[in-house]
Structure formats: C-alpha cells, structure tokens
Design a protein around this nucleic acid. Sequence first.
DNA 1: TTGACATATTCCTATAAAGGAATATATAGT
DNA 2: ACTATATATTCCTTTATAGGAATATGTCAA
Lengths: 112, 112
Amino acid sequence: MARAATTSDAFNAVAEPRRRDILVLLALTERPVNEIVAALHMEQPAVSKHLQVLRKVGLVRCRRDGRHMYYRTDAEAIRPLHEWTEYFEKLWQHQLLRVKERAEQTTAGEKS
Amino acid sequence: MARAATTSDAFNAVAEPRRRDILVLLALTERPVNEIVAALHMEQPAVSKHLQVLRKVGLVRCRRDGRHMYYRTDAEAIRPLHEWTEYFEKLWQHQLLRVKERAEQTTAGEKS
DNA sequence: TTGACATATTCCTATAAAGGAATATATAGT
DNA sequence: ACTATATATTCCTTTATAGGAATATGTCAA
C-alpha cells in the first residue's frame, strides 16, 4: 500500500512545506493565484495544484471575481491538528513543571 | 519529484494515522514493542518500521532492557507542530469573537 | 471573433512509501 | 552450542505523489 493521499485529511495536506507557506500567506487576506505565485516564487501550475489539494481538504476556500480566483485559508480547518498536538503540549508543560519543582526542592535541600 | 520522506520532519512523520496512534499510546508510559503490537492490533514488522520513522525524527526515544526495547514519546518534539497550528487557532478564536460581537450589536440594534 | 490575461489540467518522470512475507539480528536461559 | 523470545531489516508490489512542460479552460475587452 502506498502512503495516504494528500487529499485524505489535513495532516497529509499540511505535510508539504509549500502548502504550509500558502496557508500562512492566505491566513490574513484572500489573494488571487498570481499574487501567491509572485510572493512564494513558485510556478503557477504548482500553486494551482497545491491549492486544489488544500481545497479538497477544506483548508482553503475560493471565490471567483472576473478572471481572478481569490483564495483564503479557512483557519478552522486546522483545528483538528491543533487539538491533536495540544495533548502533547500539555504533557510537555507538565513535565517542565515537574522538572522545575524538582530543581527547586534540590536547591532548598542544599540550603538547609 | 516525489513527496518528501516521512523521516524528513515531524509534519511528514505524523501524517500517518498509525504513527499518531503509536505516539498517543507512548505518551504517558514507555512500552516494549510487543505491547504496542498487541494494543494497536498491528503486525510486529509494521510497528518496528513506524518506530524507526518516529525515531529518526526524534518523536520517540528508546531504551534497551534485555530482549525488550522500550519506546516512549518525546512530547517536546511535537512542539513545532503545535506552534505552527497555534497561529491559526488564535486567528480562528479572533474571528469567532468578531462574529459574536457583530451578533450582539445586531441584537442590540433590533431592540432599540 | 480575436487576442490577452488568469487559472486549471494533463502528461511525464523519478522518488517515496506502506503492508505482507520471509528472514536476519540480538539477547536470555539451559 | 542450542533454543525460544523479542525486535529489526530486506524484498516485493501497488499506489501516490511533486515538479516541469505543454496545453486546456475561462473571462474580459475591443
């Protein structure tokens, strides 16, 4: 079996660095394709292809205006990713806290 | 060009659902390979292969004890992922807030 | 209709991957 | 040394890319 399709979910879609670049670029403002091409120094077909992948997973939305297609990031679609990582982040913070506590106890012990 | 290697970074490594399962399983406790096999109902070679991928990216650490290899998740290695998604999460929360404010203004306007 | 601009799609190639089966390596016990 | 257990690696097949070049589609303007 091959690897899962990039269009299967947000995790796979976001694995590609250029797609992450695109998502960041389109986070605050919608932009037509040619602006993305210029901003990220990529070939136009490459940008279009990445946009289709992102669109299938719901990470971007688009709107037509004349000859231009305006794309924007749908931040909410990244939530599943954020929530999955949050679990580990909390764990990490917790471990940090314990390390800190242990360090403080040791220091206190040295002082007494 | 093909897709980037799963061993290139955490984003690619985590794109595979089974690997995410493994990371969750090993988040709180270290476990030998055969326990992972039993818990996730996977073939042993498959588990070993996924573990090597995760190890190369630093998402898991391992320790040998006799015939057993104990693996555990390194929660800190997931930070880059969490931080990247955080930007969009904040954006989404902000948008939610604005939607809420607008709704309240509308309600107020209707009342007056 | 013709031409120019904007975007999408197709075809091609090289690379990567996941699962399954079989096998290799490592360690403990006798 | 031999056996059993635990884990890692190799080989094979099928599938999915990502990029580049060329081309198709869509839309406006004269």
